[in-house]
Design a binder for these strands. Structure first.
Lengths: 198, 198, 198, 198
DNA sequence: TTGTAATCGAGACGGTACGTCTCGTCTTTTC
DNA sequence: GAAAAGACGAGACGTACCGTCTCGATTACAA
């Protein structure tokens, strides 16, 4: 993200910009955020933003990165009580709650949009933000698979998509209410499949 | 979308604007389309656009509407050969092909973004564009359910999400390559579920 | 100065800009006047200025033009009591007083500078502002010449330069104090010449 | 001009800046010269300029000073053949030629402007650049006066203004073509005065 | 001979203003 | 009375410089 950086970048300014970005995202729609406003909110010259970030999206993205890297203590881990269905249901319910939180909604939609339109950003997102999380999901499933709780020939990537894809899709497109019941049903249906089990 | 229309609206101008919108979407990124440019491309006064549409998104949306309503002859219908897995695979493969077509990509991402940020538009989308399609999907599954090919207590809405959600999610977030193999595996996994079948 | 003007220019905005220009010139140095500040002072969009004037200098110039054309009732005329020396002395003394007035100084230096650097502006200045005044000077001298008070073969243009040139030069370059005594001596010396008169 | 200079200033940098200033004046309009560009052209840090000169005008001025002090070998002297009219005509013709030279025009207009707007610079100009020249002019006239060729009570300062003032005025304001004929007529008219000589 | 202190090139910083672009509104003219 | 044309006030865009600042790296005195 950040250019070569010959060694003299002001860390204070960097943090001020990223913090201001997160603050603004809480207040106004992503599209209405201007570099001008961002700079003035951060108490920073516009040039300082243009010097270090190629686009508004990149700033917002870096802000998310800072947030996530600050929050996370070590590698992410999904709960593992041995009961896969229960664990997944818990995680999805938490996700539902989070997605319904107003203060996260705007920033996350902004991020989703930015990723949808900028392949380069999408790649960084996949590596830095989604990557570790996805790996954690895959590992939880792998443990279940080894315990014989999942099909032996299961493609774990497809499995992850099958569980979380519908959730994000419904949230992003508002194709229906995002409730904990939906999360429950989603987990159950994904685990058992659409076909009847004798 | 279109206001009451008391009777004096110029159909020629309306079509010119919508056609120009579709043309521009092929050429440039959605975000770079301006009302100004749209009006001049359509050979129309700016006021004519502001008079009849509340936002840029609404224009683009109306353009999609015109496109889809023009294309469609009667109600949409999913293939039904009796072999559900084969039929779903065929449809998903077709969707994969379409999503990978460059000339559809920009407009569809634009639409997705617009829906993600504008709940009102999302509602109209759900009703006018996605609605009929979703109904067709549900009906195909219902027939399979009645034929005993799907679980009796299956929530068809969740089922639709389970099949198409991962696909759109992967496309929009570019979280992985969108291939026909992926479509195949998705259908199979959704039908059988993650758990092992004895 | 003003472009073709297809017929829809706002007279109110035009006057607001020119008035603001004159106001600002009283307050701050010409070089510190910005288009941005001018527009905001005039309560006008920047584009309105850029649309109708090619440069800051052109605006200031137009402002002077408005001023002079507003002030002047009919053609300018120099006093003619029959006593050329007395008349010229009176006029030059008045000029000295005016040039020493703080509220005229800044604008006039600004105008002089602008003319010095922009030949196009200089031409308009020569025609619209300086022209009528210079003609009045020439005419006063011509009457004196006809009355036998000036040399028959005198080049009136050179004569005008000889009387007013030193004054403006001394003012602009601050090469010495600009007093009424200087004006008196200048007139006398110009009329009699440097050579001794027997 | 130059600050106290405690003894450690780099002569190389000083010359580089002044030379760059003169070079740039040949290429672009004075107003378009920036400290930033000047520093980079001179291969010098901006701070080195800000450390040693108070303003852009001061740099340009110092550059002129360097130029003039380099050129001049000893005190300036006007020609003295005994024929005052001929001598003055020769000098004024030379001045006309010089003022018409494109490579001198920009820098000299820049200098004139700077002097017009900055009284402090005007004082230094009067002392360092114009002073010696003006003294030379006065001395030539004084010799003529002693020889009885000029009026006994003539104010030599006014006389100098009368001869050179119109010329610079006409050049700076472009109020008419600057030709050798004009120079000739100017000298003749100044010497004889406007009034008829019996 | 070695500090040590000021100067140097470089360039980031918070800012102001540039000249351009588009917004959404308003006004004029044409059909 | 809707339409095309386009001027208007507003304000963001990305760039250029402003004048200040900090950073090693020379560099030339004083110890």
């Amino acid at each position: 993200m950040t250019p070569p950086n010959t060694g003299r970048r002001s860390e204070a300014s960097r943090r001020a910009v990223l913090t201001a970005a997160l603050d603004l995202l809480q207040e106004v729609e992503y599209a209405k955020i201007s570099i001008e406003g961002l700079a003035s909110r951060a108490g920073v010259g516009k040039q300082t933003i243009y010097r270090w970030w190629p686009s508004k999206g990149a700033v917002i993205f870096d802000a998310f990165l800072m947030l996530s890297e600050g929050a996370e203590g070590g590698p992410v881990q999904l709960p593992d009580t041995g009961d896969l269905a229960a664990d997944l249901t818990e995680v999805l319910r938490a996700t539902v709650t989070e997605l319904n939180e107003p203060r996260y909604e705007q920033p996350m939609r902004a991020l989703a949009t930015e990723i949808a339109h900028d392949p380069e950003l999408a790649a960084i997102y996949a590596e830095r933000l989604d990557g570790p999380l996805r790996e954690a999901k895959r590992q939880r499933l792998r443990r279940a698979q080894r315990a014989g709780q999942l099909a032996e020939d299961l493609d774990l990537d497809v499995a992850v998509d099958l569980i979380w894809g519908p959730l994000f899709q419904r949230w992003l497109h508002r194709s229906g209410p995002l409730t904990t019941e939906y999360a429950d049903r989603l987990v159950a249906t994904a685990l058992d499949g659409l076909r009847p089990r004798r």
